[in-house]
Nucleic acid binder design. Structure first.
Length: 711
RNA sequence: GGGCGAUUAGCUCAGUUGGUAGAGCAAUCCGUUUACACCGGAAAGGUCACAGGUUCGAGUCCUGUAUCGCCCACCA
C-alpha cells in the first residue's frame, strides 16, 4: 500500500501482470465475488457437475439452529465438511452436501421466551397458535440470515436441496415412523418419572439436564423408631412407607408389612415397613422413607411393592394441599420453615451441614429439576441400540475417532428408554388421540370424543431421522443414489443426542446405516483454551474473524494442527499467520507470472525434474492425508511446502536461473508447481486459490472448484 | 459409582504404522539494491509428567503412580 506503488504499477503493467497482484491480497474484495461465481456455475448441485461421474460422495449438514448467529463451532464444521466436499468434487465424485436449517424446538423456544420476557410478556399468557406463529416468523427470518453466513464461510453445499426441519416431508416421515414404532410395539405411553423444569414447564430427556454439585444440609429425622436422612424434607409430607434392606441386621426385628403409628410433620400417621434390596445399607442410616412421585429410586420401589403415589409438589414447584399449612409455598422458602416445625416437635436428630451431592438442573436455566410422574410417550431403545452396536461391530459404520467409538458403544450398551414428549408448542405436534384412556395414533381425529395430545416431539426425534428424510426416503432418486451417506461430521457434544439416534433410527427405518463414517470435532475454545461464554465475554464470532483476516485464514486457523475429535483453540493471532500466507500465495503468483509463463513442456533440467518430483511427493502425501481425514496434517504440510520450500528455496534460486539460457525449463516448472499447488490447497483455502486461478493465463478448467485433482 | 481422555519449547498445540523432536505466537540479533515488510536472514529455547517393562531402538507400545479435564448415571 505504499505511495510509490503508482510508479512500480506503471512498470508492471507493461509486463502484462494483472493489476490486482501489484497490491497485497484483499480477501474482502474477492470472497463474495468468488462465491457468486461458484453458485452461478451450478456445480454445488452434483447433477450439474462436468464429466461422467458415477461414484457418489454425500454429506448431510448438521442443520444449524435458525435462531441466531453462527458461532465458532459452526465455522469449524463448515470448514471440515467443505474441505471434504471440495476434495471429492475435484476427485471426480458426484459430490453432494445437503444444507439444512433446524427449528430447534426447545432451544428456539427458550431463545424466544427470553425475548418475550424482555418485552414483559409470557408464553403462558398466549394462545398456543399465536405463539407458534410468532416463533415461526422469527425463525424464518433468522434462517435466511444464517444461510448467508454459511455462504460467507465458503460452504459449497447444494442450496437447491436445502431442507428445513418443519418442511412437510419431514413431518410426514416423522409421523410415519411414529406409527411404525407403535405397530412394532417399540412405543408406549407410560407414567414414569420425568425430568421436569418448573420454569420452562416441560419435561426434558436425561441429556437435557446437567449436574451441579451443591453443599446442603442433610437432615436426620426421627420417624417412629427409625432415623431417616434426607436433603429434601419438603417432599416428605406423604411418606408412609419406611424402607430398609432385608439383610440389614440392625433392623432384623422389623418385618415387611409391619405397621406403626408415629408423629410426623403435620400430625400422627400410620407407617408401614417395606424391605427392598435396592437400599444401600451404608448410606445414611440405611433406612429411608419414599416419595414415589418425586424420586426415581422411590418410584421404582413403589412400583415393585404396589404402593400408592401422591403428588406433593405442583408443576410450578409449589407445595400442594397435602402439605397442610405450607400449601402454596415455594419449596425453597418452605424448607427452612418445615425444618423449624420439625425441630419444635423434636423430630430432628441432627443436621449435617457439609453434605455435598449433585443435583440435576435444567441445561438452559440452571433451575433444579423437579422429578415428577407424568404420562409421556417413550421409545423402547434396547432393540434399536443392539442393532446399532451390531453395525459398529461388523464395520457398516466406523467412528473415526477411537475415543468416541468407545464412548458410543458404552452408551448404547447402557441405554434407557427415550421420553419423546415435550410440553412446548414450538415443534412437531404428536399425532395421537385419547378417549377413555385408550390411545390412537392418527394425524386427523379418529372421531367423536377423542382428545388430541397437546404435546410436541422432542426435536431430536425428528432430527434423528435427518439423513433419510433429507434424501427423500423411501423412493426418491436421491435416496437411492446418495444413501447411505459417506460421512457424518458433527460436534462430539451431540454424539448421543444426534449421532446415536440417527444411527438407530436409520437402521430401523431403512435397514441400512445412515452414514458409513462418523467424524467428530471437539469444542472450539478461545485462545487460552477457555470455553467461550457470553458471561465471560470471550466469545469469538467467526464472522468477525472472517471480516478481519479473510475466510481462508479463519479456516486455516481452525484446521492446522487441530487433532480430530479433540477440543481446539481459536487464536486470532494464529489466524493472522494464515492471512499472511494468503498474501504469500498472492505474491508467489506475481513472481511466477512476472517470470513469464511457459506451458509447453520443454526439455527439463535435472534441477527442475527434482522440483517436480518433490511436488508430486507432496501431492501424494496430501492426498493420502485427505483420504484418511488428516486435515490438520495436510493443511500444515501445504503451508510449509509452499512457504519454506517453494518460496524460500525454489523461487529464490530461480532469480538466478531465470537469467540463464535454460530459463524456460524453470518457467514451465514454476507454473506447474503453482497451478498444482492451487489445486491441492483449494479445499482448505477456496477463496484465494480460486481468485488466483481466475487470473492464470492457462488452465485446464475454467473454475478451480471443478479442476481435476492432481493424481 | 462407571466410562473416556490429557500431561512435548515461555504460551497454545502438532507429531499418521516405534527410527535420536516441530509449528504458530512471544522473546534476541541483523537486514528494506525489486515476488512479498502481510518480508528476508541468523541464533536461542525441550532429560517429550514420573517410575518400571517390551525392543537393536520408545514422545510413539505395555504396566503402575501423580496431577488436570470431559462425559454418563435414579444414591435417599
Amino acid at each position: 500500500m505504499s505511495k510509490d506503488g503508482s510508479k512500480s504499477s506503471q512498470i508492471r503493467n507493461d509486463a502484462g501482470i494483472p493489476d490486482e497482484f501489484l497490491r497485497p491480497y484483499q480477501p474482502q474484495e474477492s470472497e463474495s465475488a468468488m462465491y457468486a461465481l461458484w453458485e452461478k456455475s451450478g456445480y454445488f448441485n452434483p447433477d450439474n457437475l462436468p464429466g461422467d461421474r458415477t461414484e457418489p460422495f454425500t454429506i448431510i449438514m448438521p442443520p444449524p439452529n435458525a435462531n441466531g448467529s453462527l458461532h465458532a463451532g459452526h465455522a469449524l464444521f463448515v470448514t471440515l465438511e467443505d474441505i471434504m466436499t471440495r476434495y471429492q468434487r475435484m476427485r471426480g465424485k458426484k459430490a453432494l452436501w445437503v444444507p439444512g436449517a433446524d427449528h430447534a424446538g426447545f432451544e428456539t423456544q427458550v431463545v424466544y421466551e427470553k425475548k418475550l420476557e424482555k418485552e414483559g410478556r409470557s408464553r403462558f399468557e398466549m394462545k398456543p397458535e399465536d405463539l407458534y406463529k410468532e416463533i415461526y416468523d422469527f425463525t424464518i427470518e433468522n434462517k435466511s440470515f444464517m444461510e448467508n453466513q454459511l455462504r460467507q464461510l465458503g460452504a459449497s453445499c447444494d442450496w437447491s436441496r436445502e431442507v428445513f426441519t418443519l418442511d412437510q416431508k419431514v413431518i410426514d416421515t416423522v409421523y410415519d415412523t411414529f406409527q411404525k414404532l407403535w405397530d412394532d410395539k417399540l412405543l408406549y405411553r407410560g407414567s414414569r418419572i420425568v425430568n421436569w423444569c418448573p420454569k420452562h414447564q416441560t419435561s426434558l430427556s436425561n441429556l437435557e439436564t446437567e449436574r451441579e454439585t451443591r453443599t446442603e444440609n442433610f437432615y436426620y429425622l426421627k420417624y417412629g423408631p427409625f432415623v431417616i436422612a434426607t436433603a429434601r424434607p419438603e417432599t416428605k409430607f406423604g411418606d408412609k412407607y419406611v424402607v430398609m434392606h432385608p439383610d440389614d441386621a440392625r433392623y432384623a426385628k422389623y418385618k415387611d408389612g409391619d405397621t406403626f403409628e408415629c408423629e410426623w410433620i403435620n400430625g400422627k400417621i400410620t407407617a408401614t415397613v417395606v424391605k427392598d434390596e435396592s437400599i444401600d445399607m451404608s448410606l445414611g442410616t440405611g433406612v429411608m422413607t419414599i416419595t414415589p412421585w418425586h424420586d426415581a429410586t422411590d418410584f421404582e420401589i413403589a412400583q415393585r411393592h404396589n404402593l400408592p403415589f401422591e403428588q406433593v409438589i405442583d408443576w410450578r414447584g409449589k407445595l400442594l394441599p397435602i402439605a397442610g399449612e405450607f400449601t402454596g409455598m415455594n419449596i425453597k422458602e418452605a424448607r427452612p420453615k418445615i425444618v423449624e416445625k420439625l425441630q419444635s416437635k423434636e423430630l430432628v436428630e441432627k443436621i449435617d451441614d457439609k453434605y455435598s451431592h449433585e443435583v440435576p438442573v435444567c441445561y438452559k436455566c440452571n433451575r433444579e429439576i423437579e422429578p415428577q410422574v407424568k404420562e409421556q410417550w417413550f421409545v423402547k431403545m434396547q432393540p434399536l441400540a443392539l442393532r446399532a452396536l451390531e453395525a459398529l461391530n461388523n464395520g457398516e459404520v466406523k467412528v473415526l475417532t477411537e475415543q468416541h467409538d468407545k464412548i458410543l458403544r458404552h452408551w448404547l450398551s447402557n441405554i434407557n428408554d427415550w421420553n419423546i414428549s415435550r410440553q412446548i408448542v414450538w415443534g412437531i405436534p404428536i399425532p395421537a388421540w385419547q378417549k377413555d384412556g385408550e390411545w390412537k395414533i392418527s394425524v386427523e381425529s379418529p372421531g367423536e370424543g377423542w382428545e388430541k395430545d397437546p404435546d410436541t416431539f422432542d426435536t431430536w426425534f425428528s432430527s434423528g431421522q435427518w439423513p433419510y428424510i433429507t434424501l427423500g426416503f423411501p423412493d426418491s432418486d436421491d435416496f437411492k443414489q446418495f444413501y447411505p451417506t459417506t460421512v457424518m461430521e458433527t460436534g462430539a457434544d451431540i454424539l448421543f443426542f444426534w449421532v446415536a439416534r440417527m444411527l438407530m433410527m436409520g437402521l430401523y427405518r431403512t435397514g441400512k446405516v445412515p452414514f458409513k463414517n462418523v467424524y467428530l470435532h471437539g469444542l472450539v475454545r478461545d485462545a487460552k483454551g477457555q470455553k467461550m461464554s457470553k458471561s465471560k465475554g470471550n466469545v469469538i464470532s467467526p464472522l468477525t474473524v472472517s471480516d478481519e483476516y479473510g475466510t481462508d485464514a479463519l479456516r486455516m486457523g481452525l484446521i492446522v494442527g487441530n487433532t480430530p475429535g479433540t477440543d481446539l483453540n481459536l487464536d486470532p493471532r494464529k489466524t493472522g499467520a494464515y492471512k499472511k500466507f494468503a498474501n504469500k500465495l498472492w505474491n508467489i503468483t506475481r513472481f511466477v507470472l512476472e517470470s513469464g509463463v511457459v506451458t509447453e513442456k520443454p526439455t527439463l533440467r535435472d534441477a527442475d525434474v527434482k522440483i517436480l518430483s518433490r511436488l508430486s511427493e507432496v501431492a501424494v502425501d496430501v492426498t493420502s492425508d485427505l483420504e484418511y481425514f488428516r486435515f490438520h496434517l495436510a493443511s500444515d504440510k501445504l503451508y510449509h511446502y509452499l512457504w519454506d520450500e517453494f518460496a524460500a528455496v525454489t523461487i529464490e534460486e530461480s532469480k538466478e536461473v531465470l537469467k540463464s539460457t535454460e530459463a524456460n525449463s524453470r518457467r514451465y516448472t514454476l507454473y506447474c508447481v503453482l497451478s498444482t499447488s492451487l489445486k491441492l490447497l483449494h479445499p482448505f483455502m477456496p477463496f484465494v486459490t480460486e481468485a488466483i486461478w481466475q487470473k492464470l493465463p492457462k488452465k485446464d478448467s475454467e473454475l478451480l472448484m471443478v479442476a481435476k485433482w492432481p493424481q
